[in-house]
Design a protein around this nucleic acid. Structure first.
Lengths: 221, 221
DNA sequence: GCCTGACTCATACGTTCGTATGAATAGCCT
DNA sequence: AGGCTATTCATACGAACGTATGAGTCAGGC
């Protein structure tokens, strides 16, 4: 479990490599524990223990607990932004690409189910995310909103407020991932089951497609 | 601010009334502070100070901090459940009533903007909500899912998984309220502004309506 | 008129937290 | 070889937390 640091070294490490590796271990452990127990619930002591390092390591490498949290968030969000960007720049109508954005979220959350928890726990607790995170979110928002504007022009997407539309779209995979643990007992729907995941993806794509498609009388005008 | 307890008494209070009033003050203060600062961020000391009572009051009336939190959640969620129920039982097609559910959420969140934060902060932090809360959520879920099943029968709603559909619908107002503070800096979209609220409601209704309406070739079959 | 029980209050306890500090360790460069 | 520097580590500190405890207060019932 916490052996990452011991199995990591194969080739001779420089002194700086050791530091970088500790940094990486802390981010990995922080991601795991912040996601599972929340920011306040994950103590520096637990995180450093999980990372197989010392209590002082967080202060040394990140300045503070909040600094580590920002690094965890940034490292978790960048790949999503990249995936969204790839989907936006892909081939097809705006609607097609919008659905690919949804798929990108789905796939990413399948690999990292705790990501929505990681970000939204602080938002829900009334705190402002770190600036780096806001910048990433802004980028994603603009990419999706741009896609919608494009879609209105080429007729594949219904007219509407770009930011609100972007929100409606991304809220689907995000909210689903967020309440997945609740769904198991309330649904009961187990999103950990592959067949259920596939069904959920298909449902979401269908819902978003329907939500974005122009009404019959809007198409030609 | 924390004068609730002093302005409350007009008629002669019985001894038991005093206790009930303290209870109510604690719930109100807890709701405010839990919503603003999160569960861990709101200390018993801060809550009792805000309620104008003593540190021991929470333990006495609710057994523990968690007991107060459960009471706060229950009191916050029951009115929503009632509103949803009223919308479900109202007149019109299933689709109409579904949209009324969305409106109910919107209106309720306008009065209590911190409600989504209150519930989801704990979900996001990986904790299971109290049983009372799960029961309420279950009821709402069943009401909405039932509406969808009805809608498939009367042809006003597209076929699909009832629970996932219910989730897609409620995620719209909930997620919007959840990220509203973020939206102000990222959007920039200020949902506190009445005109923006109206626009957001109209957008959401249109999106959900489109998402639920059967495709052209599904209507007659 | 006093006793009872519900309620309030002040204070203390033990724990846990994030951070600070200074010594120890080890690769790197000249 | 030996100092330099980056990193690790053990430990200490002060603050804040949730809860427990016991004394104090007061309306209501007999």
């Amino acid at each position: 479990m916490s052996q990452a640091r011991h199995t990591r070294a194969e080739s001779p490490e420089t002194r700086a490599d050791v530091g970088a590796a500790t940094r990486a271990d802390l981010i990995a452990a922080g991601r795991r524990l912040f996601g599972q127990r929340g920011y306040d619930g994950a103590s520096i002591r637990a995180i450093t223990r999980e990372a197989g390092t010392n209590l002082g390591a967080v202060t040394y490498h990140f300045g503070s607990k909040r600094g580590l949290y920002a690094a965890v968030l940034e490292q978790g969000l960048r790949p999503i932004a990249a995936r969204v960007d790839a989907a936006v720049r892909s081939e097809g109508t705006s609607l097609d690409r919008m659905l690919r954005v949804v798929e990108a979220y789905f796939e990413h959350f399948e690999e990292h189910p705790d990501l929505p928890h990681l970000l939204l726990q602080e938002v829900a607790a009334g705190k402002q995310p770190p600036d780096v995170v806001l910048e990433i979110i802004r980028g994603v928002k603009e990419a999706i909103a741009g896609l919608q504007v494009e879609g209105i022009a080429d007729g594949s997407v219904r007219a509407g407020h770009p930011v609100l539309t972007a929100l409606s779209v991304v809220s689907q995979p995000i909210y689903l991932a967020l309440v997945a643990p609740l769904l198991r007992t309330v649904g009961p729907v187990d999103l950990a089951h592959p067949a259920m995941r596939r069904l959920a993806l298909e449902h979401t794509l269908a819902f978003v497609r329907a939500g974005l498609t122009p009404a019959r009388n809007e198409i030609h005008r």
